[in-house]
């Protein structure tokens, strides 16, 4: 079965075509889903791509959380559907309460656009099931507000429950405990600052992101169909 992936587009999203391209390159189907949509029925996985949703007004991800599609994303996630937030998508998942913590401005206060080494910390998530623990991947980052922060209790829970998905080998942005990506309790929602969709073929400088998005497609193809409609009535 070919996995069908919904790539959510908010006003200001700018990585949706990269994400859709990567999904198709890896053998999946990808459809762009406008943020006004309230129906994710028929999708096997959802990607919240990078960008500046709603201009990042107020805070990164703060307004996007109220887009009609986010109610459907929440239901999709709670029903067990695989959801991955990349960069701004990670920030949105945190603001929406689907992942704990938040992303603050990088230590050093510089916008970072470079390829970094990421270490896979767990393979028990929808994004890393095809990787191996300790595997080091070369993946680009492209963010100003990517320094992961959370309270001490959350950090303990993330460590104890094996929910740190990827860590920076050489922490570029001051993230607490070098965290680059985390997952939820059920391990079907993953957020990460690096962009695996920009590292899926050698011509892009690295194809190391393929193992991550390939994992997502395998998880999507094997997940039970999720029927999800947002609760608010479409205007």
């Amino acid at each position: 079965m070919t996995a069908r992936v919904g790539v959510v587009v908010f006003p200001g999203t700018n990585c949706e075509h990269d994400a859709a391209y990567a999904v198709r390159l890896l053998g999946g189907d990808a459809d762009l889903v406008w943020h006004r949509s309230t129906d994710l029925t028929g999708f096997d996985a959802v990607i919240l791509p990078g960008g500046f949703a709603h201009g990042d007004y107020l805070r990164t991800g703060a307004i996007a959380r109220f887009s009609p599609v986010m109610d459907a994303v929440g239901r999709f996630a709670h029903a067990g559907g695989p959801v991955v937030g990349i960069c701004n998508g990670f920030q949105i998942l945190c603001e929406a309460g689907l992942l704990p913590g938040a992303l603050q401005k990088n230590a050093g206060l510089k916008f970072l656009c470079q390829t970094v080494a990421l270490r896979v910390e767990t393979t028990s998530t929808v994004l890393t099931r095809g990787a191996t623990v300790g595997q080091v991947l070369q993946i680009p980052i492209n963010h100003f507000e990517g320094s992961y922060v959370c309270d001490a209790r959350t950090l303990s829970a993330l460590r104890d429950d094996d929910r740190v998905v990827v860590r920076y080998v050489d922490n570029p942005n001051g993230s607490i405990d070098s965290i680059a990506g985390i997952c939820n309790d059920a391990r079907n929602v993953v957020g990460l600052m690096p962009h695996p969709e920009r590292a899926v073929e050698d011509v892009l400088g690295s194809s190391d992101g393929a193992v991550l998005l390939g994992s997502l497609l395998v998880a999507a193809a094997s997940s039970a169909p999720v029927s999800v409609v947002s609760s608010p009535v479409r205007p």
Binding site: L58, R59, A102, Q104, V149
Partner: peptide, 8 residues
Amino acid sequence: RFLTNPVL
């Protein structure tokens, strides 16, 4: 719930 993020 909206105007501030208690983590930050």
